[in-house]
Computed example of a mutant assay.
Amino acid sequence: MSTVKLLISDTSLSKVPEQIKRINDTKLSGFHARIGKVSEDNRSKIALYLNYRIGGSGGKQRNYLLGYHGERDLKEVRKEVESLKGRIAAGEDVYETKRIAQRELFIEDNSPTLAKLANEFLTRYVDVNRKDPKEVRRMFVKDVLPTVGEMKLKDITRRDVIEKVLDPITDRSSGTQANKTLSILKQMFDFGVDRDLLQGNPITTVKRKYWRL
């Protein structure tokens, strides 16, 4: 791969010789452009990156994608690079920050209902690992799905589970059943976390026999 060092600008990126595959910026260290293959319209897609190491010279190397030439204003990109370099100098791994933010946004935009998680949990976990899957399914049908089944996973709180599921069970003097339901729901939410359907288990701190607020 042929690499050159130039000031990255609209002019320098408009006519890149075919043999050049990377341009390192002369002013902002780590800022570079990667030139892709020529497409049918006789143009190359040019990706803009910031390369850096987190944790010193022996630390992990990162390539932070800034966008693509033609889709972003280069002046704005250069400003972003300067800002990112300041955050990196302060010890932040901006690549990881972005990855976490994108993951949270994906979960926010694609959050399924509890009913969808329950169906996957029952099918993939309960039916496979429990000796009494029918009893667990009856639990969901009777006490869980009618009250919180249509709620989005991202919106469910500890209080929702306590007030809408556990308290009604205890109100009919079924403390043992409430404990069983709590245990199963904790397993279900952990199952959802493992599959990136929600960020964390909303009832992980709820203790047996102590759910009333």
Rank of each mutant, 00 (worst) to 15 (best):
E80H: 13
V81C: 05
Q61G: 09
K27W: 06
D196S: 13
Q102A: 12
T97H: 10
T3R: 15
F189I: 04
P112M: 02
N201D: 09
L198H: 01
T147C: 02
R130T: 03
E96S: 12
V38T: 12
L153M: 03
N129W: 07
V94N: 10
G91T: 11
Y68L: 04
P202F: 02
K85G: 09
D171F: 05
S183T: 11
I88V: 15
I88P: 08
L7R: 14
S174I: 08
I88R: 04
G58H: 10
L6G: 03
K75E: 14
V4L: 11
D190R: 13
P112H: 01
L114Q: 00
Y49H: 11
A178L: 04
L153P: 00
G149L: 00
P146G: 02
S29H: 10
R172G: 04
G58F: 10
Q199K: 11
T205L: 14
T204K: 15
G56V: 11
S183F: 07
I156Q: 04
P168K: 04
G30Y: 01
E71F: 05
Y64R: 02
N24S: 13
A115Y: 00
A47P: 08
F140L: 02
I46T: 12
T3P: 12
L50F: 08
F106V: 09
R62D: 07
K98G: 07
R208G: 07
T26N: 14
T3M: 13
V128D: 06
G192M: 01
V144I: 11
D160T: 06
T181W: 05
Y52D: 05
R195K: 04
E76L: 14
A178K: 03
A90K: 15
G59W: 10
E135V: 04
Q102H: 10
D196R: 12
P112T: 04
V16L: 11
L48D: 08
T147Y: 03
I100V: 15
G192E: 00
D109G: 13
E76R: 12
T26M: 11
I184D: 07
N129H: 12
K27A: 08
F189N: 05
A47R: 12
I203L: 06
K186D: 07
K116W: 06
V16P: 10
V38E: 12
P146T: 00
V206S: 02
D10T: 10
L166W: 01
V206N: 02
V38I: 13
L48W: 07
K21M: 13
V126K: 01
S111E: 06
E163N: 13
K186R: 12
K134R: 01
A33M: 12
A90W: 10
D109P: 06
R78E: 11
R195F: 03
Y210R: 14
G67H: 01
D194V: 05
L13R: 05
R130I: 02
R130S: 08
R43T: 14
V81Q: 00
N51H: 06
R53L: 10
S173P: 05
W211N: 05
A115P: 01
M151C: 08
I203A: 03
L213R: 13
G86F: 11
L198D: 00
G56L: 09
I203K: 01
F121C: 05
D109C: 11
N179I: 05
S173Q: 13
K21R: 15
S12F: 07
P146H: 00
N51C: 14
R130D: 03
A118V: 02
L13K: 06
N63P: 08
S57R: 15
D109E: 15
